[in-house]
Design a protein around this nucleic acid. Sequence first.
DNA 1: ATTTCTAATCTTGCATACAATTCATATATG
DNA 2: CATATATGAATTGTATGCAAGATTAGAAAT
Lengths: 244, 244
Amino acid sequence: MFCQVYGMESADKVHTMSQAFRLKQSIEDAVIAGEFLPGDRLDEASLAERFGVSRTPIREALLQLGAEGFIDVRPRRGAIVSVPSPTRLFEMFETMAEIESACGRLAARRLTPDNDEAMEAAHRACEIAAHEGDSEQYYADNRNFHEAIYRASRNSFLADQAFALHKRLSAYRRIQLRARNRLLQSLQEHAGILEAIRAGDEQLSATRLHDHVLVQGERFSDMVLGLAGDRRSDAAGSRSGTTR
Amino acid sequence: MFCQVYGMESADKVHTMSQAFRLKQSIEDAVIAGEFLPGDRLDEASLAERFGVSRTPIREALLQLGAEGFIDVRPRRGAIVSVPSPTRLFEMFETMAEIESACGRLAARRLTPDNDEAMEAAHRACEIAAHEGDSEQYYADNRNFHEAIYRASRNSFLADQAFALHKRLSAYRRIQLRARNRLLQSLQEHAGILEAIRAGDEQLSATRLHDHVLVQGERFSDMVLGLAGDRRSDAAGSRSGTTR
DNA sequence: ATTTCTAATCTTGCATACAATTCATATATG
DNA sequence: CATATATGAATTGTATGCAAGATTAGAAAT
């Protein structure tokens, strides 16, 4: 389980960091770990007590997480773990698909031996986890594989955006990977993606990554739509009724 | 001309908003307006005095802007307006190009009469400004045109991402549009983009938008670098020294 | 004159206190 | 019985104070 914020500049600077930054990480980790579920209130006083600090750094952490879109901070009404509507969730996956495919396109164009090696290593780790049916492990290795692709784009800004969105979606991805079939299918898709990038085929890389990501969103939407009604009437732009 | 933060849910909620949120807007506006230049320190005490509030809401605003990547907040060392390196700046434009082209692709696929009309209106406004050579006005209308495309993607999350990045790059875009030739060229590109989207040609829409955005990044890089030497020597992958 | 160490000053980080608003409960009213 | 209103409790927003780290200036030494 682990941090590595954006750069990867956090690990070595830990002792320099203020409490607020540490708390931000801790709270984010707790959310990702599923300790706080979507919709849960993040009460300032409780969190302050839990971490043994005053409300001030807690507030600062929450506001930052809110600015990143990780949680929902409504003025005067406290913070809650975001509960994206099925529509919103689909939109997030669709966006992720576009960003990842952009990474893939650039990776195909600019692949270096270093990046190739990193992707290969991550892919092999995924293979092992998949064949052992260890979905938790696969979840972690899968993340590394995707991050390797982000880096291979050789655009650190784009990679940061991809990291961030990947994190925001991690909760939903995890649930989704529990299905064993999906593990092996995912692995096969990875192989195809790797192949396309190595061949330097930008278009194919982009398409395969796009589909690989979007299929998760679709599966998840289906899963969710089964039960939940639509929570958000006000949210965003013009309610985009369909989105597909 | 104005704000509209993410959703467009801000305008009507202004009176409900806390000071910290208003300050966030004000500081951001000041930065965009060029009142604080890249590299300038954003001193908590001075800002507090300027806005007639205590440091607390100022801090909260700064931390949020930092989380959005708009400014650089270094623990214990204060906040400064981000100074992206030429490399980083190019990466940002490249990312913008990818995101915008994604918007264009989706817009071509999903175009509705409403969105068509909005784009048309924005385009006509650009025409007027361009022919009058009013670059400030064109700057504003150009923004509306692009935002109309974001919305036409009918993916509000993607649109939000696009808005945010567009804002972060606005300072650089503005400088860049001062060149009169560029105004008319930009306008022509807009026409081509509109045409492609209307034709429902996803690929062409994406390509034209991509080029339209990237050419700005390239021009700007050239301008900054003088000779465009290093552009992207260290790019990506490893330590992303700057920003955040 | 240059460098290094020290001390004073300035700035940020956190805790506490209080004010303002929302939320919940209960009471009144149709 | 349902709805509306009012009152009290809980929670968030902002101000202030103090402690700790960072920056700068100055003095001492080479």
